[in-house]
């Protein structure tokens, strides 16, 4: 026990190692992988992210141009961000705040290339 005493005394008089969370929080690191968000205007509904997602939490509907993500299934791996061809998926540097109810992120994109789609529908 004697060898530990200097450390204990130092800790006793030193600054605490912990913060008064949530009153004080640490600055997040700049490239930490946190909450996922989409810039849906840029998205062309290619479904690459939905296919790559290891947790399979992303659903993309090409017809209705919707992009859905279950944030409670997301594992923050950032694979979707890497594969996105339009670079419209991003991650904040902080985790999503805890919530009391589950929900699904629902984003409505523009239905692009309409003429082509109608042509394929009628065909």
């Amino acid at each position: 026990m004697a060898f530990m005493t200097p450390t204990i005394v130092k800790n006793f008089f030193g600054k605490p190692a912990t913060r008064m969370y949530p009153i004080t929080t640490r600055e997040p690191f700049s490239n930490a992988r946190g909450e996922l968000y989409i810039d849906v205007k840029e998205c062309n509904m290619c479904t690459l992210c939905a296919r790559a997602c290891p947790a399979q939490c992303i659903t993309v509907d090409r017809e209705k141009a919707t992009w859905e993500c279950d944030p409670f299934e997301c594992v923050y791996c950032g694979v979707c961000v890497d594969v996105c061809g339009r670079k419209c998926l991003h991650q904040h540097d902080q985790y999503r705040a805890p919530a009391v109810e589950k929900f699904v992120m629902h984003e409505q994109g523009e239905i692009k290339k309409k003429p082509k789609k109608e042509a394929s529908d009628s065909a």
């Binding site: 690191f29 490239n31 930490a32 992988r33 594992v75 923050y76 791996c77 950032g78 694979v79």
Partner: peptide, 10 residues
């Protein structure tokens, strides 16, 4: 800071 996550750094 270097990899983006605390444990599962992926």
């Amino acid at each position: 800071a270097t990899a983006g996550a605390r444990v599962i750094i992926s």
